[in-house]
Computed example of a mutant assay.
Amino acid sequence: MSEETKPNQTHKTLIYTAKSIVLVSLLFILCSLIGISVCYWKDSPDLRNTTNQAVVAVEATKSLIKANPIPADAWKSPEESTIPADEYGNMIRYGRELVKNTAQYFGPNGSVARISNGMNCQNCHLEAGTKTFGNNYSVFFASYPKKSARSGKMAEATERIADCFQRSLNGKVPDLSGKEVQAMLAYMKWLGSEQEKGKKAFGSGTEKLKYMDRAADPQKGLLVYQNKCQSCHGQDGAGVRTEDQLAYVYPPLWGKHSYNDGAGMYRLSNFAGFVKNNMPFGISYPDAQLTDEESWDVAAFVNSQPRPHKAQKEDYPDRTKKPIDAPYGPYLDGFSEQQHKYGPFSPIVLALKELESGSDH
């Protein structure tokens, strides 16, 4: 080694030694902090309890997800590639477009007719009717014709569409033989093309939540709404319109532009099951954010707000077929409209069973 390289070697050695001292010092400080934290955790019941609760909550969530997986044989929407490349395929595509953007064609400034409130079908039938527990169309077409409990008569699929326009869209019935309704039916038929008639598909409709042992509470629901819903639907529930004002980015939940009191969403069980697996926006089954109680309560809050009225005196002529949460009389069981709207529902179920049992003797 030359005399010229010795100073460089010494310099490098000094630098390495200094770095080592710094590293050892940092490790000592880090170990001390960990030791202090562990001691503090042991001596702090509040911190220990909070940590334990967090661990329990995480494990409970994992268990819930494992306990409620989507079955392997659950219904799934057909692949878009299976839509025929012909005129009928064009009808299917047009039907999907109508479901997604109903207001563009039938809203207050619709290009086909101006007969609805500006909401879209997919505001209630999420992702154009393809989402698990999002009111999908998996069994829709296969279910008709059928005896309608609401009308008491045999009904075709077109009549169900007419009902949605009159109730959920708070509007008028479109031309049921026209191109648009026939296109919607073609789309719904395609969606359910692999669904066996009479068989219930997993994830269809909305999840049926267990009844609470108390009435749903609009005041508790207000807190849920403020924390989970208000940022999209607004303090006044009026929703958020698209930039061109023709439709809604987030639909109105009450007020004159929302669904009326004859709509399916005005029944608490439907609304609660819907929000459970779909709200806040972006949530999907089984990763729910709301508890069952929060779902019932926020449903009670939303449906306690003002909305358009629809005459329903002709609905459910056979009272034995009337849903227990239909919030308008008359009833067979003697319970009030208030209880039929908000619950508790279990006493009503029991009373109806007793009535049915009595009628068998």
Rank of each mutant, 00 (worst) to 15 (best):
D315V: 07
I70D: 09
R93H: 02
A57E: 00
V349T: 06
T5M: 03
I161D: 02
S143P: 01
G221L: 13
S2K: 09
A299N: 04
S138Q: 05
P71I: 04
S204E: 13
N278Q: 05
K153V: 11
L191T: 01
S151M: 10
Y316D: 08
A103S: 14
S359R: 15
K322W: 03
G198Y: 07
N135S: 15
F202W: 04
Y88F: 06
N260E: 10
C124F: 13
A351V: 05
A215L: 14
Y137K: 03
A67C: 06
I29A: 13
N49H: 10
D325G: 00
C124W: 08
E207H: 11
G134R: 06
R167C: 04
E356Y: 11
T158P: 03
S204L: 01
M91Y: 03
P218K: 09
A74Y: 06
I115A: 13
V224T: 15
G255Y: 03
K179T: 15
Q305Y: 06
K147F: 12
L246V: 12
E159D: 07
K19H: 08
G221A: 13
S143C: 05
P69V: 11
Q312D: 10
A288V: 07
S359C: 10
K172W: 10
A85S: 05
H309D: 15
C31H: 02
A300V: 15
W254E: 02
P286G: 06
K341Y: 02
G343M: 04
W296N: 04
M1C: 03
Y137V: 04
D318I: 14
G237T: 14
G205M: 10
R319H: 14
L209I: 07
G35D: 09
D73P: 15
L33A: 05
A142V: 14
N227Q: 15
N227S: 13
W296L: 06
C121L: 03
R319P: 14
F345A: 02
R93D: 11
A60C: 09
F106T: 01
A215R: 06
E207W: 00
R267E: 15
G129M: 01
W296M: 09
N90F: 02
M184E: 14
D297K: 11
K6M: 15
A215Y: 11
L176A: 09
E79Y: 03
S44W: 01
L14Y: 11
K310T: 11
D163I: 08
G107M: 12
N170P: 01
K62I: 05
G107E: 14
P286T: 11
S77P: 00
I65F: 12
D236G: 08
S357R: 14
V249P: 00
Y266G: 00
G178P: 08
I283D: 02
W41H: 13
P174I: 08
P145H: 03
S168Y: 07
V56D: 08
N8P: 01
K197T: 12
V240R: 12
V249M: 07
A247I: 01
L176F: 09
S116F: 07
K179Y: 04
Y16H: 00
S116I: 04
L23Y: 01
E156N: 10
E3T: 12
Q305L: 05
L126R: 11
A326M: 12
